[in-house]
Design a binder for these strands. Structure first.
Length: 261
DNA sequence: AAAGAAGTCAACCGCTAGGCG
DNA sequence: GCGCCTAGCGGTTGACTTCTT
């Protein structure tokens, strides 16, 4: 059984408050205070239940209430306090003068939860780079291709702890990575997928990129070719472990990694 | 310009703790 | 100890606004 709401059974008004009702409530509380919320609406001549009056006063009409957007500092405080206290909104509100539990609760659910999630995602994210699928590429197997001096990119690598906004991988991160092949290099930009499904697109990596990058010496090219040939780039996941350092080196030599990322 | 989706926020609901007889 | 009443709290709703398609 659901208990009938107090306002309904008394035939009292519900819904948004009018400016007139606000005026009446404010002036009554200023004159007589609010020692008894249940009795207050009757005394003030309001067709509202005490609970509704209390909420309206506490959340909106109180003179010490601070209206307007939350500052960065306030948001940070809420996040920290929420970490410590959980959903104890009134306890959190007590630490933020002029802010109500209701307001903090709303801000939490509308802004801060998202903000925090993004922050966590960027901390915990695993990075995925999608790269050329061998069968779609003329460079798919460099050893057989006229573009054999163009190494394919590492397919997909995971890099725990790297931020989507600053995904420059460290050598140690890369050393434990795996990769797979993905989109078509000649038609698609290289895509980095973050855990929250947001995506960053790298420029198309084509022959020009590699030649302009002045990165290719014969030995690293040989290694790249070997790796690509060994992988077959058939779309399957491929673990190359320490060889990821090689790819990283290539990017670094290209000198464009900052811009790319 | 219109319709639908998503975001925002005031207000409500129901539960609980504490005071009192 | 028990039951009633009230204030306070956290979760949820829904009206309104803003954004996107």
């Amino acid at each position: 059984m659901v208990r009938a709401p107090c306002c309904e059974k008394m035939g009292l008004k519900k819904g948004p408050w009018t400016p007139e009702e606000d005026k009446i409530l404010i002036s009554h509380i200023q004159k007589y205070g609010h020692s008894n919320w249940r009795a207050l609406p009757k005394q003030a001549g309001l067709l509202r239940c005490g609970k509704s009056c209390r909420l309206r006063w506490i959340n909106y009409l109180r003179p010490d209430i601070k209206r307007g957007n939350f500052t960065e500092e306030e948001e940070e405080t809420i996040i920290k306090l929420h970490e410590m206290l959980g959903n104890r909104w009134s306890a959190i509100a007590a630490k933020l003068p002029g802010r109500t539990d209701n307001e903090i609760k709303n801000v939490w659910h509308t802004h801060l939860k998202k903000k925090l999630k993004q922050k966590q995602d960027s901390n915990n994210q695993q990075l995925y780079v999608t790269v050329p699928k061998c069968e779609d590429l003329s460079i798919s197997n460099p050893s057989e291709s006229e573009n054999s001096n163009i190494p394919a990119l590492p397919g997909q690598y995971e890099s725990p702890g790297q931020s989507a906004m600053s995904p420059q991988p460290s050598s140690s991160d890369l050393s434990t990575a795996t990769y797979t092949s993905g989109a078509t290099a000649e038609t698609d930009d290289v895509k980095v997928e973050t855990m929250d499904s947001s995506e960053i697109y790298f420029p198309v990596i084509d022959q020009d990129f590699w030649s302009e990058a002045e990165l290719i010496d014969s030995s690293s090219m040989e290694l790249a070719s070997d790796m690509v040939a060994a992988s077959g780039f058939n779309g399957n996941c491929l673990s190359i472990d320490d060889d990821m350092d090689f790819w990283y080196d290539l990017f670094v030599k290209a000198g464009d990694i900052e811009e790319l990322l």
